[in-house]
C-alpha cells in the first residue's frame, strides 16, 4: 500500500511535496516573510501544547521505574534508582485466570482486529446508504443514530445479558464481535459526514458501464473512503482495545488486556504500588503507540495520494 502510494504522491510534483515553497515561488517575497512568521508563532503554540501532552507520559515513564518509597517521597523527581523489576514482575509474575499479559495481548489483538473490521464495515454500509440514497425513512434513521448516541442508558446491562444468553452468545468471542458490529453510533456519524461530500461522479460512470450498486460500493466507494476509514478505524480500534465492560462480562474466562490490566491495576492500587501500576500501564500502552505511529504514516501518505484527481 505504501509502495504504491508514495510514487503517486511524488508524481504530483514538487507542489504536492512542498506546496508552500511551490506557491511562494509564484508570489511576492513579502508574503513569504509574514507567512513564515505566522507559522513560527503557531509552531510555538503547538510546541507548548505538545510539551504539556508529552509530560504525563514522561512522568508515568519515570515513576514506573521508581521504588515505592521513592515515589511517595517525591512524585516529580527524576528517578534515583531503576527498578526494572517493576516491569518484569508485572510481565511474568502476574496472571489472571492463568492468562499472562502475553496471552491477554493475543486475545485483545483478535477481538480488536475483527471487532474494528466488522464495525467499520457495518457503519460504512449504513452511512453510505443513508448519505447517498434517498428512500423512505432515511432522515428518521439519521435521527435514530443521533438518538442512539445521546440516550444515556440506565441499567440496561441485565436486559442485554439476557438477550445474549437467549442467543447463546455469552462466553464467546463471536458474541462480543456481534455486539461490537453496530452500524450506528460514532463511526456512523463520522462516515456519514464523509460520504456526504464524496463525489458521485465515479458511481455515475460505473453505473453507465453497467456496474451494480454493490459493485459501486465495494469496488469504488469503499476504497475511496480509505483515509476516513483509517482515521475512524484507528480511533475505534483504540476504543475496543481499551474496552473493559463488554469483554469483562462476556469473556470472563478469556480476559482481554483491558480486563486483565484493570484487575491488575486495582490490585496494585489497593497496595498503593503506584510504580508497578504505571509499569503495567506503559506495557499496555506501548503496542497502541507503535501501531499509531505506523498508521500515522499511512494516514499521511494516503491522504496526500488520496485526492480524487491525483
Amino acid at each position: 500500500m505504501n509502495d504504491t502510494a508514495s510514487p503517486r504522491a511524488n508524481g504530483q510534483g514538487t507542489c504536492a511535496a512542498d506546496k508552500t515553497a511551490c506557491a511562494e515561488g509564484l508570489k511576492k517575497p513579502r508574503f513569504k516573510v509574514t507567512k513564515d512568521w505566522a507559522l513560527w508563532v503557531v509552531f510555538a503554540v503547538f510546541f507548548v501544547y505538545a510539551v504539556t501532552l508529552v509530560f504525563p507520559f514522561v512522568w508515568m515513564l519515570f515513576n514506573s521505574v521508581k521504588g515505592n518509597q521513592e515515589y511517595f517521597t517525591n512524585i516529580w523527581a527524576f528517578p534515583q534508582s531503576f527498578h526494572v523489576e517493576n516491569y518484569t514482575n508485572v510481565l511474568f509474575d502476574y496472571d489472571v485466570h492463568g492468562v499472562t499479559l502475553f496471552g491477554m495481548f493475543g486475545i485483545s489483538i483478535l477481538v480488536t482486529l475483527f471487532g474494528t473490521a466488522l464495525s467499520l464495515l457495518m457503519s460504512s454500509i449504513a452511512a453510505y446508504v443513508i448519505a447517498k440514497y434517498k428512500f423512505f425513512g432515511r432522515n428518521a434513521l439519521y435521527a435514530l443514530a443521533v438518538f442512539v448516541m445521546a440516550v444515556p442508558v440506565a441499567g440496561t446491562l441485565p436486559a442485554q445479558y439476557s438477550i445474549m444468553q437467549t442467543l447463546h452468545l455469552t462466553n464467546s468471542i463471536v458474541g462480543v464481535l456481534i455486539l461490537y458490529a453496530g452500524g450506528f453510533g460514532f463511526n456512523f456519524l463520522i462516515l456519514y459526514g464523509f460520504f456526504k461530500n464524496l463525489s458521485w461522479e465515479y458511481a455515475e460512470a460505473a453505473l453507465i458501464d453497467g456496474c451494480s450498486d454493490f459493485g459501486i460500493f465495494f469496488k469504488i466507494m469503499l476504497p475511496m473512503a480509505r483515509p476516513a476509514l483509517i482515521a475512524v478505524g484507528v480511533i475505534h480500534a483504540i476504543g475496543l482495545w481499551n474496552d473493559y465492560l463488554t469483554p469483562s462480562i462476556y469473556l470472563p474466562n478469556t480476559p482481554t488486556l483491558a480486563v486483565g490490566v484493570n484487575l491488575l491495576l486495582s490490585e496494585l492500587r489497593g497496595r498503593s504500588a503506584y510504580p508497578e501500576m504505571f509499569a503495567t500501564m506503559i506495557i499496555a500502552l506501548i503496542p497502541i503507540l507503535v501501531v499509531f505511529i505506523c498508521f500515522q504514516k499511512t494516514i499521511m501518505e494516503n491522504t496526500v495520494a488520496g485526492g480524487l484527481k491525483g
Binding site: I163, F184, F217
Partner: peptide, 23 residues
Amino acid sequence: ICVMLAFPLVQLFVFWFLVNVNT
C-alpha cells in the same frame, strides 16, 4: 438498500431497541 441495511438494522433492533425497551 434492503440488503445492505439488513444487518445493521437487525443489530440495532436487537441490541439497542430490545435492550432499551426495558428502559
